[in-house]
């Protein structure tokens, strides 16, 4: 994989092996590749099939985050928490088309995911001190990768979408006959809390709170917010993966309840 422009460059120590690493450096990019691919595959299947994304009972109404907000005439009755803005969608068009592109953009431009997919998918580099296979490299200086600089705008959209998800989670406590509390509520609330943690721990959020200023002492409130964002930011990778898992788990749980495969464990109502 090494090129004559890389570790084989004239003048550098002449070593035949492209890398001398003896550990299993390929495991991390492989796991990342499989994990992200699995999520994308699951998401594609679930958003394209558009079944079992909503279930309502006496004390609950669970809407999958993959279909939220559901704003078309194609949505099941009761699932359109924000009204219907569009007519019927053709098959395969995601019900949450108004938010999915922004969520995808938020994750794609996220500083953690960039590291993950640059390493696992583009092998740039596959691991530290392991040569990348590309002959030339311009980083994020040209189109399309220069668009990574739009991350903060996707962050703003992600905040709005998190508010929508929060509303869904609160509304999930109410069914056709009033208030209730079940395992599905725990799943939905847990998912929303983790989504907020991931969103507010974003590097752009950290910059916006106070990262851009040089005198924290003159802005104590902003500095307090910055410290909270920094705490979450230190766990950004873990939250990035955990939220992929909770999104899938929440959607799968609702799909299983909706299809009648399992019953929602009810605590109240």
């Amino acid at each position: 994989m090494a090129t004559e422009n890389g570790v084989d460059t004239a003048g550098r120590a002449s070593i035949t092996e492209p890398t001398l690493r003896t550990d299993r450096w390929w495991i991390a990019p492989l796991v990342t590749f499989l994990g992200l691919s699995a999520f994308v595959l699951y998401g594609l299947i679930r958003t394209a099939t558009q079944t079992n994304y909503f279930v309502e009972g006496a004390g609950f109404s669970y809407l999958s985050p993959f279909a939220s907000p559901c704003v078309t005439d194609s949505c099941l009755p009761g699932s359109s928490h924000f009204g219907t803005w569009f007519g019927k969608f053709p098959a395969m068009v995601p019900l949450a088309i108004v938010t999915l592109p922004f969520l995808l953009g938020f994750r794609l431009t996220c500083y953690y995911y960039r590291k993950a997919y640059y390493r696992a998918f583009w092998l740039s580099p596959p691991a530290c001190a392991v040569p990348e296979p590309h002959g030339t490299y311009t980083g994020e200086t040209r189109f399309p990768l220069i668009m990574q600089n739009a991350h903060r705008y996707f962050f703003f959209m992600a905040v709005i979408i998190s508010l929508v998800n929060t509303y869904d989670a609160v509304k999930a406590f109410h069914g056709t006959e009033g208030f209730g509390f079940g395992l599905g509520n725990v799943v939905l609330v847990g998912n929303v809390l983790l989504l907020w943690s991931y969103t507010l721990g974003c590097h752009s959020c950290r910059h916006i709170t106070a990262g851009r200023i040089n005198h924290f002492s003159r802005h104590p409130v902003r500095y307090w917010l910055y410290q909270r964002a920094s705490w979450l930011n230190g766990r950004h990778m873990q939250l990035a993966w955990t939220t992929l898992g909770t999104l899938v788990f929440t959607d799968a749980y609702i799909a299983l309840v909706s299809s009648g495969t399992i019953n929602d464990l009810r605590f109240i109502g």
Binding site: Y111, K115, Y118, R119, S124, A129, G139, E140, T141, I146
Partner: peptide, 13 residues
């Protein structure tokens, strides 16, 4: 050339 960095974090490692 900060735009060339694709933040793969090897420096931190």
């Amino acid at each position: 050339g900060i735009g060339m960095c694709n933040i793969t974090k090897c420096c931190t490692e």
